[in-house]
Structures are given as structure tokens and as C-alpha cells.
């Protein structure tokens, strides 16, 4: 089940135009009922992948080549090596979730995929081109990132913060087009923060704030979106709210990659799961196939049973009793 195929990297024109969102059905658990607003989502789906590579690739059914690939990645901070010789491929149009115990290199991998961390060896390839060779702004129009630590400038309003997501689409003489205005409005509507537009970000609750940051990433209008622990520090209702939002984004045609702590959340929402341990991939594939008691024991050193989630039928990890 560990698919670790090397993609044939070469000018593979990628499929681009997102299919319109077909009546988003948010799972009944949406917390404040804010995560829906599906109609707006379909409009925010970027029309073009990258910058003019709008070639209508053969609409592969399931066999699309992955757009974002890491080959032989060695990741290190200063002298400390986190991972060596890691091969990952993010399937196109997937909701890929990276899980693993603390300090296994999840976030590091995501940072490398987002070009924030330069790999010590190996390359990250996006749409057939080395990610380091992409111009910064062009990359930012293709690959969006919600970092773990972002700082809301003091006193900034929600609308202003979301508007900053338009930066890669702007220029010195093109500072605020009608398009920018429309996308910002849609992004806020899609994340359910439109009502908060003129509020200061500092005043919001954790869940609201996280949705604002996601709205900013959304306003970037990227076909790929990387999220580093989007649910950390949120209570359970807000976690589900944010994850539902991510699922909506995925269904509207985006490729979403997220680092999550909660294995059950990962199993419920992911279409593709990557389990890391000690900087190597322990398992990879659809959650229904990958999440097993053996895997959890191997990756998290946790004895457990895996049962079927009564709500969704996805695997549900239940830690073993103390005896």
C-alpha cells in the first residue's frame, strides 16, 4: 500500500480548472454553522494552475500525476537531521493528511514542500519544475500556505488581513483591482467570517481567528493549499469546523495538504494519509487501508483497536484499556 512511485517529472501539463462545487454537504457536526456557505467556494476556485499553464490536461480519472512531489528529501535544521531520503508525492485533488508522533518531522516535511525549508538534499518538484526555480510570486499563486505561527499585526481588521492574501496577485501599479475585492469578499464568505470583516483580529476567538487565516490563504486563490496544524489550540467544535472547511475546499477542487495531530480526524477527513515516524514514511494510502492497529502500534507505540466510525465508516482508533 505504500505507493512511492517516482513521478515522471517532465513538463506534465497539469489539469487545472476546478469543477464547480457540487452542493457541499457539510457533515452534521459543523459547529457554528459557519463552515458551509458552499456557493461562494466554487467561485474562488482558481481558474488557472500556476501562471498560464492553463492547458486542459487530459481529465485523468484518479490516475492524475501528482503535482507536488518530494524526491529523496533530506531535511535538517542546522546540524540536526530530521529526515533522510524521503520520497513523497501528493496526489492531485486529494486531501492529504500527514500524521505521526511528536517530533517525527511532519511540519518539517510540510515546510519543505512549501519551500520555506530548503532541503539539505533532494528536491521538491511542483508541476514538473524544481520548486526553488519558481519565481516567488508565481509560486505564491499556485501553492498557498497556512503556517503554524503567523502574527496578526496589531489592530488589523479581518478584512485587511484577508486582503493581504492578494499580495501575490498585485503589483506596484495594480494594487487593488475589482477582482481583488471580489475574491476577498468571497473568501470571507466561504469561511464564514464576512460578518467579522471590520472587527480587529486580536479580539476574535481562537476558532474565528483560525478561519480568518484560512480565509487569507484562500484569497491567494491557489490550487494547492498546505496547512500546518490548522486545528491546534482549538476546542473540539472548532476543530471540526475548520476540518469541515478544509473538506469543502478539497471538494471544490483544491489539493489540500494538512499536518494533523489527531489520528481520528485524519482518518475521517483525509483521502490520502501519510504516516511518518522518525523521519521516514511508515505507511501511505487511503485511510481505510492504512489505519490499522499494527500501524498505530508501530507509529505511535500505542496499543489500540481500530473500529469503524459509526458516523462515516472510516477507521476509528480506540486506545487499549489500562487493564
Amino acid at each position: 500500500m505504500t505507493i512511492r512511485q517516482h513521478p515522471t517529472s517532465g513538463g506534465t501539463a497539469s489539469p487545472s480548472d476546478g469543477p464547480p462545487l457540487s452542493g457541499t454537504e457539510t457533515g452534521g457536526a459543523a459547529a457554528n454553522g459557519a463552515a458551509s456557505a458552499g456557493t461562494a467556494l466554487s467561485d474562488t476556485v482558481p481558474g488557472a494552475a500556476g501562471d498560464g499553464t492553463a492547458g486542459n490536461g487530459a481529465a485523468g480519472n484518479g490516475a492524475r500525476p501528482p503535482r507536488l512531489v518530494g524526491e529523496g528529501l533530506t531535511l535538517a535544521y542546522d546540524k540536526r537531521t530530521i529526515a533522510e531520503g524521503l520520497d513523497v508525492a501528493v496526489p492531485d485533488r486529494s486531501f492529504t493528511v500527514i500524521v505521526g508522533p511528536n517530533a517525527c518531522g511532519k511540519s518539517t516535511l510540510l515546510r519543505a514542500l512549501a519551500r520555506i525549508l530548503k532541503p539539505a538534499a533532494g528536491t521538491v518538484v511542483l508541476d514538473g519544475e524544481r520548486i526553488g526555480a519558481w519565481p516567488a510570486k508565481k509560486l505564491a499563486r499556485t501553492l498557498g500556505l497556512l503556517p503554524q505561527s503567523s502574527i496578526a499585526p496589531e489592530g488589523i481588521t479581518v478584512a485587511d488581513l484577508v486582503a493581504r492574501g492578494r499580495y501575490p496577485h498585485q503589483g506596484l501599479l495594480r494594487q487593488w483591482s475589482r477582482e481583488d475585492e471580489r475574491v476577498v469578499a468571497e473568501s470571507m464568505a466561504a469561511t464564514g467570517v464576512a460578518d467579522l470583516a471590520e472587527r480587529a483580529v486580536d479580539e476574535l476567538s481562537g476558532g474565528q481567528r483560525q478561519r480568518v487565516w484560512i480565509a487569507m490563504a484562500l484569497a491567494q486563490q491557489t490550487p494547492l493549499l498546505l496547512l500546518d496544524e490548522p486545528t491546534t489550540y482549538l476546542d473540539i467544535a472548532h476543530q471540526i469546523e475548520v476540518l469541515d472547511l478544509c473538506a469543502d475546499l478539497h471538494e471544490s477542487g483544491r489539493t489540500v495538504v494538512a499536518v494533523l495531530h489527531d489520528l481520528n480526524h485524519a482518518a475521517r477527513y483525509a483521502t490520502h494519509l501519510i504516516a511518518l515516524r522518525d523521519g521516514r514514511i511508515a505507511a501511505e494510502g487511503a485511510p481505510g487501508e492504512v489505519v490499522t492497529a499494527e500501524l498505530v502500534r508501530e507509529v505511535f507505540r500505542l496499543p489500540c483497536r481500530v473500529i469503524e466510525d459509526p458516523e462515516t465508516g472510516t477507521p476509528l482508533v480506540v486506545p487499549a484499556a489500562r487493564r
Binding site: 512549501a114 499563486r141 498557498g144 497556512l146 503567523s150 499580495y167 501575490p168 506596484l172
Partner: peptide, 24 residues
């Protein structure tokens, strides 16, 4: 004022966020 002002505003959100928005 003209060339770096907007990028500086992005940098205030943290390096990762600014990087994600395409600021060198």
C-alpha cells in the same frame, strides 16, 4: 516607500506567512 513598503507589511505577519505570499 514605494518598492518595499508592501512587502514589509507582509513580513509583519511572520516569515512563514510572508513566504507563503510570495515575498522574497
Amino acid at each position: 516607500l514605494v518598492f518595499c513598503g508592501r512587502a514589509l507589511r507582509m513580513l509583519e505577519m511572520g516569515d512563514d506567512a510572508a513566504h507563503g505570499l510570495g515575498v522574497p
